[in-house]
């Protein structure tokens, strides 16, 4: 009970600190604005630990963060192998292939208004569908190894990127296109020097949505069959053995990989679209 009350006290204390911090002058600085969410996240972990210990929740229902951390450290080689199988082989390859295919398709259909009017509603419709459902079919076609996972990822990322890129290619203004026309720029020149750069913020929006989808696709596809390595496989296997601390360690890996992937794409976006109002500060 003492642990539980201590958890509550820590929660209240950290919250009061955050309230004071958020009204203080620290908020003007970058570090100060990072401090508040960091404190919040840390408090969540501490309170989780204390409450689990205080209420004596069994480890098979919710393990405390310390146990997860210990398991994470001791199982590093397994986690690394799973990460490589699911993320590097499945998700990344599928992501690269799906995004470039969607990008090229968007440029191809950009020249034909007919195809655009026909494909875009279909694309929008497909983008809203539960595409993870094709995972069992693709696993059946491409086998249990990473190829089928990459295929699921390709299909999942294709439509969001396609729809965003097509929208982006329309983003340049008539005045700008007229200017290119008065320079007698060719189609290719207009595309490379005006329309693609103007489309980049939209394209990157699609790429960022696709990062999460890629990881989800690769993990969920492993539920339908996989070799004995991989994050999705490990999660199902360990849930069956009630090794919940390992499952949480795997989730931590997925969270880290997902955030890092998203962060990397955002960083590239910042370098490439530095001129856009949303990137200025």
């Amino acid at each position: 009970m003492i642990w539980f009350l201590a958890g509550l006290a820590i929660w209240a204390g950290a919250w009061a600190l955050n309230v004071r911090l958020s009204h203080s002058r620290l908020m003007g600085s970058r570090a100060g604005r990072l401090l508040v969410p960091a404190i919040f996240g840390l408090t969540l972990l501490v309170v989780w630990e204390f409450v689990v210990r205080g209420l004596q929740v069994p480890g098979v229902i919710l393990p405390p963060p310390s146990a997860i951390g210990a398991r994470f450290a001791s199982e590093l080689p397994t986690l690394w192998a799973d990460f490589q199988q699911t993320f590097v082989k499945g998700a990344l390859r599928g992501y690269a292939f799906g995004c470039s295919a969607a990008f090229l398709t968007a440029i191809a259909i950009d020249r034909s208004p007919f195809l655009q009017r026909g494909l875009l509603p279909v694309g929008n419709f497909v983008a809203a569908l539960p595409i993870v459902g094709i995972a069992p079919i693709l696993v059946m076609w491409f086998g249990f190894d990473w190829q089928s996972k990459a295929a699921v990822v390709v299909v999942m990322v294709f439509f969001p990127v396609l729809v965003n890129t097509v929208a982006g290619l329309k983003a340049s203004e008539t005045m700008q296109r007229d200017l290119m026309a008065t320079y007698s720029a060719s189609y290719l020149q207009t595309l490379l020097k005006l329309r693609l750069p103007a489309a980049l913020p939209f394209v990157f929006n699609g790429f960022k949505i696709a990062t999460t989808l890629a990881l989800i696709g690769a993990i969920v596809a492993e539920f339908f069959g996989s070799p004995i390595v991989g994050m999705g496989f490990r999660i199902t296997a360990e849930v069956g053995r009630l090794g919940l601390d390992m499952v949480w360690a795997e989730i931590a890996v997925a969270a880290l990989a997902g955030s890092a992937f998203y962060g990397a794409v955002s960083l590239i976006e910042r370098r490439m679209t530095f001129w856009h109002p949303s990137q200025r500060r």
Binding site: R33, I39, F40, T212, M231
Partner: peptide
């Protein structure tokens, strides 16, 4: 305070493949 502390974590929670936790 809630804006500053909850919003970044809500965004971060979406980069996690939440579907992966489903079986658990």
């Amino acid at each position: 305070a809630m804006d500053l502390s909850v919003m970044p974590w809500a965004i971060a929670s979406q980069t996690i493949p939440i579907l992966a936790i489903a079986p658990m």
